[in-house]
């Protein structure tokens, strides 16, 4: 066994990387093809209110995030689709409100808020075993829903109007998908933090799209890429003794930049 695996926290970190990558690759694929990255960012930031709630009630902040992110998903979804509020307005309102609630609740909590930084920016090295179980449970839930609704999700992602004409309840499917994004945010908070969740939701899937012919293929590749980014970032952060979440994001961004630039150059040569 290599040195690095002797530590329990390191084995947990690797488990967290593997498990979070499953949700992040599958749901990230929908986020990228439907171009709902900004909604996902809004849901993630609103979740800060849940972290505050967790501290205030003295429970695991991940449990506080679940209701907050689900509420944000349904709220933003309904506001934009039913109340005809502009999407960026709805996102901004929820984003700031969630953060404000979080700040107030943390302020009301007596004493110092430990690990607050790790919820904001992620720290894969501090994931406790109990969180791994929660993450596994959410992975199974997300995977099952996506498997059951794969033809419906494909239809609303590709051509929402046609899906509606075909008799699908597109609003309900949209809200369901946003709820899955909310649960993915819960999973990712430990790894990337609410501020940087959006990078891991979009970058692996965006790179995967360049090489994929089907949605399932894109999901599989996005999961693999996410695992690779996580492990590479984890190793580099270990070697250079820097923040793990941020390192993972930078690795992902570098690969994204490289593939994007290669594609652009190849496109120019063809012309």
């Amino acid at each position: 066994m290599p040195d690095i695996l002797h530590f329990e926290f390191m084995r947990n970190a690797i488990m967290a990387a593997l498990l979070s990558s499953i949700a992040c690759g599958i749901i990230g694929t929908y986020v990228v093809v439907r171009r709902i990255g900004s909604i996902s960012g809004g849901i993630a930031h609103t979740a800060f209110g849940g972290i505050g709630l967790g501290y205030y009630l003295g429970v695991n902040p991940l449990l506080g995030i679940i209701p907050f992110s689900l509420l944000a998903a349904i709220g933003i979804g309904l506001l934009t689709r039913k109340a005809k509020v502009a999407e960026d307005t709805a996102i901004g309102a929820f984003w700031a409100t969630g953060m404000a609630i979080g700040v107030i609740l943390i302020g009301l909590t007596p004493g110092y808020a430990p690990n607050l930084f790790s919820y904001l920016f992620g720290n894969i090295l501090t994931v406790p075993a109990s969180d791994l179980q929660l993450i596994l449970l959410l992975d199974i839930l997300i995977g099952a829903v996506v498997w059951l609704f794969s033809k419906e999700f494909l239809a609303v992602s590709f051509d929402e109007e046609y899906a509606r004409v075909s008799g699908l309840k597109t609003l309900a499917l949209d809200l369901l998908m946003l709820c899955l994004i909310a649960l993915t945010v819960v999973i990712m908070v430990r790894v990337a933090g609410i501020v940087m969740v959006i990078a891991l939701l979009t970058i692996p899937a965006a790179v995967a799209r360049m090489f994929s012919r089907t949605l399932q293929g894109m999901m599989a590749l996005a999961v693999s890429l996410s695992i690779a980014f996580n492990l590479a970032g984890l190793w580099l952060s270990w070697v250079f003794d820097v923040a793990s979440g941020a390192t993972v994001i930078l690795v992902a961004a570098l690969v994204f930049l490289a593939t994007g630039a290669t594609a652009a150059l190849a496109g120019r040569r063809k012309r």
Binding site: V33, R35, K151, E152, L154, A155, S157, F158, D159, Y162, A163, S166, G167, L168, R209, S212, R213, T214, L215, G217, M218
Partner: peptide
């Protein structure tokens, strides 16, 4: 639609079966 959407002709046509 997004020309980069990873979907084949057959998969699009299958949507007619929804």
């Amino acid at each position: 639609f997004d020309r980069d959407f990873p979907i084949s002709v057959r998969e699009v046509v299958m949507m007619g079966r929804l």
